[in-house]
Design a protein around this nucleic acid. Structure first.
Lengths: 341, 341
DNA sequence: CTGAAAGCGCTTACAG
DNA sequence: CTGAAAGCGCTTACAG
């Protein structure tokens, strides 16, 4: 029995181009890589041969020889569902790809396990598949990522945990200040019982936003116990809102650590007969598309997600060039007032 | 001026492991690759050395030697926004990753230009970066992708154009039958003026769904001219709905080629004072999360998106093993009746 | 079962 | 400006 496999075309090599053009492999390599020390007519001849043969350099061989892969990993320790569910990631990724488009690098998305990276992810990142990595949505609990840059340059989206242990490169906003901004707005509206729906306690941004709310509420001499935690999803925001209402039916405002969670919270408030913002004012965080796609346009703390993406990419590219960019890039937030508070 | 670069750790090589374990490189390679012809104690010794040195094989070297990259590309010719905006892609990707997780392959997402692949994408796919590719959301107008499998195995999500030119592997549903299913439901409801919002005419699935609607409407002796085209986004559905209402204010039903477009259409209908389904019945297509996240739960034609993803992955894996799976895998659709029709 | 050797397709000093 | 040669870190027949 003969198993006939579809005959795949065999890619031409540098060697073949050299033969076709009647020069050495070194020379072909030089013109492929745009070296300046090649005579014009040789360049022409080689390029002609390349076109004729439809030559494309083999990346494995190239990266083995020069120890560059020209690939960057975007590592997101979240499952597919949450990755696609939160517009924040979409915007970050748009920012990143917009700068990588103009570079020679390709982006490889790696969805990792939220708890700790799998063996496969580790081998991928350490096995010479990429020249650098951007890690977004980092959770505490393992420090593989924070120590990864002993091997390849890494930029974090969001200040990583344990900054004293190791100084990582990151771009972030001042989450505490942003949360304070949102909470103060609630205070200025005369609200006196302001709850918060915080993000998961194993994420630095969630902790910082919680802290910003906490400090503001304390400073105002208000109850600082109205906290519930969500997982940055709509469903998580809804569950937290229910718990909050059960504990404090008289709350009159809630600062929510993400727009997606705020959307879930608003739905619950309405279902329980609360008017937003009359009975309960709601402030979100992100100013992503989720802020304006729900039942009511959310007043929210804006963070420049797309620009954060471009900054991450730029920072990594600088590191890859051997430069030493400022390792900490903190971008501004601002309050966007809409209908929910 | 000395530019001090952060000292990156140098990865240990096979050679180092061999020295550490006191064996030859061939032997280390054998245990790394799980060859059976190695004595137990040597295996133990080599593994110990691997652990001690924290050895991870260099993928470039490996793939240069054995001509395998152990990577698969998921090519989506859509911009980031649309990719993230449509839950359909999320589900497809979940299906794909679920089967790849249990394999040694990693998935590399490649968002390509919708019109024609960029030079960068072409070089990526042809430059030996991946062993195979899954192409989803293929548009007509270039046949790079349909001829790509002369070089590497390719599986399409959705029947590609020009099937007579070249027989590609694909996973799809019977879009025409599905559309007929949805349109017939509208007929059974007594609707007599059934419009359609079709997808872009450069996508086979859109054409097939349009054809299914067309055949059904003609068969019933109804007006077959009520067609507007959308781009599979909410905004596109809204625009198309407006045009339809302007042309035929008396239409009493609309079959929409995707849930996302249907959501946009429903919003326009309501804004124009039409009750759904009383005045205008709406049937969508996909049965994605968009069907149940809008103002009204959509009656829709269900396609098993996640399973289609798993089938694509399985088919590609089979091709990669040198097998010859059935190149055409057509999965069933079914009508899901909710509130919009 | 194990090792020496060739080779995968490039890049890059080193000569000239 | 150009080429011969070594080397990147693996795998894989080929001997033994």
């Amino acid at each position: 029995m003969t198993l006939e496999l579809p005959g795949r075309r065999v890619a031409p090599t540098l060697e073949a181009v050299a033969a076709e053009a009647g020069v050495s492999r070194s020379t072909v390599s030089r013109v492929v890589n745009g070296s300046s020390h090649v005579s014009p007519d040789v360049v022409t001849a080689v390029n002609a041969a390349i076109d004729r043969l439809n030559y494309i350099p083999n990346r494995a061989a190239r990266s083995l020889a020069n120890r560059q892969t020209m690939a960057i990993a975007l590592v997101v320790p979240e499952d597919t569902q949450r990755f696609f569910g939160d517009p924040f990631f979409s915007e970050i990724m748009q920012g990143i790809t917009s700068v990588l488009e103009d570079s020679d690098y390709v982006l490889n998305l790696q969805l990792a396990r939220p708890d700790a990276p799998s063996e496969k992810t580790i081998r991928y990142l350490l096995g010479g598949n990429v020249d650098g990595a951007i890690v977004v949505s980092h959770h505490s609990g393992d420090d593989f990522f924070t120590t990864l840059d002993a091997t390849i340059p890494v930029v974090f989206g969001g200040r990583p945990f344990d900054p004293e242990k190791h100084r990582n490169n990151y771009v972030d906003v001042d989450n505490a200040a942003g949360a304070a901004l949102g909470t103060k707005h609630l205070l200025s509206l005369g609200r006196r019982r302001i709850a918060t729906i915080a993000g998961p306690a194993n994420m630095q941004a969630a902790i910082d936003r919680h802290d910003g709310w906490l400090a503001t509420v304390r400073e105002a001499g208000q109850d600082d116990s109205l906290v519930e935690y969500g997982d940055f999803t709509m469903a998580g925001g809804a569950t937290a809102m229910r718990a909050l209402l059960d504990r404090a039916p008289d709350l009159d405002a809630v600062f929510v650590a993400s727009d997606l969670m705020a959307t879930g919270a608003v739905a619950v408030l309405r279902a329980r007969g609360k008017r937003v913002p009359e009975d309960v004012a709601v402030v979100g965080f992100d100013d992503s598309s989720a802020a304006t796609s729900g039942e009511i346009a959310l007043t929210t703390v804006h963070q420049p997600s797309r620009e954060m993406g471009t900054e991450m990419a730029r920072m990594l590219l600088a590191l890859l060039r051997g430069e030493r960019p400022d390792p900490e890039r903190v971008m501004p937030t601002r309050l966007v007032i809409r209908d929910s508070a």
